[in-house]
Write a protein that binds this DNA or RNA. Structure first.
Length: 644
DNA sequence: TAGATACCGT
């Protein structure tokens, strides 16, 4: 006989589906084993139905073993539990504990759609049905995971106590690890810690779960302490530290961890890369952005859609919008995250038409559905270039065509769009018509528009809401005071100042960063003398400002709201962190170079003017990323067209 | 013959 022939096949709509060929040297596999192999090899839900039909014909549809495999595969294809998988289950007269557990696991995937199929309900059925099934440790893993997904501490506690009363499963390592995660998800760190402390044996997962718990509440020193104590530092544990730092706005520490991980010889995976890429995005560090690309290329994760989307976001946030576009164009696989990152990035750089073109391409020529974030990008693009009608159109489209309920962030974009265009009354009306309470961003957009258009009456309304929502948000007081100052309403200015004093508000902790040629990040705080080259930087700034004054620069003293004399105001302006970063950049670059600055707050008017003039006088391109958008200064002009 | 837990992007 030449070669073994397939011994069975299933025909589905003209395509035959071959069962595996047995080796001639081994005994024939059992029918069970053959069917199990057929389930494993099925190409989709349709094949699985065909296999189930075969099971019925062969009288094997009551086999817990085979039905268990079927359920697992169906949930792999995310076939909802009701009604088909439940039907398959119901044909098994005496489901064994494995099968019950598989059912509970499937139910956990869809617990939100069918409350009557909730995992806990199925568990109680499992315990009450005759003959009752004893639970397995796996049963508790599944149940605890579903409690964590529901953020239900009450359910979690109930399952925890069941795990003890039904046979001491709380001593099982897997159950303990899942308990830790459940308590962490349900924000009960004390209980998570209690489980951890009570464990006689801990593995990498136990340690990592608790490390994540501490990073989530922002207690990085406890997380670091645990990480140092842990003897099992795998790539996941390292990544938990990296993302913990990122989530707590500590990108430098995240990068340092990544380096230490590499030095420790740990093999990097795509998740570690994504965390590191986010850290670079947060830092806005251009050199690092180019550095990580080499690493991504070497590891071969460049075509991973999550890595790619993170890269698009990173390049956009580092000011390298063309590089972001290049990565985007080279990606083979793009999803809604990829498109949203690109649209939001283009919008932040003021490239509104490109952003809207891309959105239209996505909506028209791909199967990728836009989501709420994509529309944030589209609406931002419209507002940053005064496209009022387009903005109104997309706001309607979002609701009517895509069924996306506008969030306060979308309303903030609309308030910004209408307000900037001078339609401040309409913006106020929109805000007042919101079905939910407006957040600070919404009133802030309105207040910003009032600054541009000198609307003191509406500014007062917006500011009063802001003072209530963000009593410590000093920027709001500054803005209102500026608006009054521009209108010559000095009494009001002094009232705002009094309010600030009464609330004990201190100077902004403003900070800027810029990168040196070596890629080192130099950090500057307002009025700070900490940089080792402070003397040189201050001298350079004086010289630069002297140069600009010859070209007509007059400091915009109204950017200072402190009640001090004009000389002191000018001095305060000189101490602004972005000017220190500019001076450092000027000192360390030459003609034609680009100086890139990242700032944690919105750039002030005086600094904006200085950047604009310096780009021509010093013959440098200057790219400033503030907390609102990017400004590209070139030859005395800014990409924002003074529209910010 | 079966089964699980930790870290990712807009």
């Amino acid at each position: 006989m030449a070669g073994a022939q397939p011994i069975a096949s299933i025909h589905v709509r003209g395509s035959s589906f071959l069962l595996p060929t047995p080796s001639p040297c081994l005994p024939l596999p059992s029918l069970d084993a053959l069917l199990a192999a057929a389930i494993d090899a099925a190409a989709g839900p349709f094949h699985l139905r065909a296999v189930h039909a075969a099971l019925i014909r062969l009288g094997l549809d009551s086999s817990s073993f085979l039905v268990n495999k079927l359920l697992r595969r169906l949930s792999h294809y995310r076939v909802p539990l009701h009604p088909y998988p439940l039907l398959i289950f119901s044909l098994v007269p005496r489901p064994n504990p494995f099968l019950w557990t598989a059912l509970i696991r499937s139910a956990a995937l869809f617990s939100s759609c069918r409350p009557d199929h909730h995992p806990l309900r199925l568990y109680s059925l499992m315990r009450r049905r005759w003959p009752p099934s004893p639970p397995l440790s796996f049963t508790f893993s599944a149940l605890l995971k579903s409690a964590a997904a529901d953020y239900s501490l009450a359910n979690g506690l109930q399952i925890h106590s069941q795990s003890i009363s039904t046979g001491g499963f709380d001593a099982d390592l897997f159950v303990q690890n899942t308990l830790i995660s459940m308590y962490v998800e349900c924000s009960d760190l004390a209980s998570a810690r209690k489980v951890f402390d009570g464990m006689s044996l801990r593995d990498a997962i136990s340690w990592t779960s608790l490390i994540v718990a501490y990073t989530k509440i922002g207690d990085l020193s406890s997380a670091e302490g645990l990480f140092d104590r842990s003897f099992v530092k795998d790539v996941v544990a390292w990544t938990a530290m990296i993302t913990g730092y990122v989530q707590n706005a500590m990108p430098k520490e995240a990068l340092a961890s990544f380096e230490r991980m590499r030095q420790a010889g740990v093999v990097i995976d795509e998740v570690a890369l994504v965390g590191t890429i986010s850290a670079i995005a947060q830092l806005g560090a251009t050199k690092r952005a180019l550095w990580i690309r080499d690493i991504v290329d070497k590891t071969g994760f460049g075509q991973n859609v999550v890595v790619g989307s993170a890269m698009v976001d990173m390049y956009a946030k580092c000011g390298l919008i063309d590089e972001a576009r290049r990565v985007f164009d080279e990606m083979m696989d793009r999803n809604v995250y990829t498109y949203s990152a690109m649209v939001v990035g283009l919008a932040a750089h003021g490239r509104a038409y490109e952003a809207i073109d891309l959105f239209n391409e996505m909506a028209g020529r791909t199967n990728v559905e836009p989501n709420h974030v994509t529309f944030i990008g589209v609406l931002t693009a419209c507002s940053h270039s005064g496209m009022v009608e387009e903005g109104r159109f997309y706001f309607r489209t979002m609701k009517n065509e895509y069924g996306i309920v506008p969030s306060p962030d979308h309303y903030a974009c609309m308030a910004d769009l209408l307000g900037r265009a001078g339609l401040i009354e309409e913006a106020l009306e929109l805000v007042r018509s919101m079905p939910m309470k407006p957040h600070g961003g919404v009133w802030g957009a309105l207040l910003g528009a009032c600054r541009i258009h000198g609307k003191t009456d509406i500014a007062r309304i917006a500011a009063n809401h802001l003072f209530e929502l963000e009593p410590d948000g000093i920027g709001n007081y500054v803005l209102l005071s500026n608006i009054y100052a521009s209108a010559g309403m000095w009494d009001e200015v002094s009232k705002v100042r009094k309010l600030m004093r009464a609330r004990g508000l201190k100077k902004n902790p403003s900070a800027s960063w810029t990168e040196g040629k070596d890629g080192a990040v130099h950090e500057f705080f307002a009025g700070d003398n900490c940089h080792p080259r402070t003397r040189e930087i201050k001298d350079a700034l004086e010289e630069l400002l002297r140069m600009l004054k010859l070209e007509g620069y007059k400091p915009i003293l109204s950017s200072v709201v402190y009640d001090v004399n004009d000389d002191e105001k000018e001095n305060l302006l000189k101490g602004h962190s972005e000017k220190l970063a500019l001076a450092y950049g000027w000192l360390t670059t030459t003609f034609g170079d680009t100086i890139r600055i990242t700032k944690n707050l919105r750039i002030c008017e005086d600094c904006h003017l200085v950047m604009r003039l310096a780009s021509r006088a010093a013959n440098r391109e200057i790219v400033v990323r503030d907390n609102m958008r990017f400004h590209h200064f070139r030859d005395g002009e800014c990409s924002c067209g003074e529209f910010w």
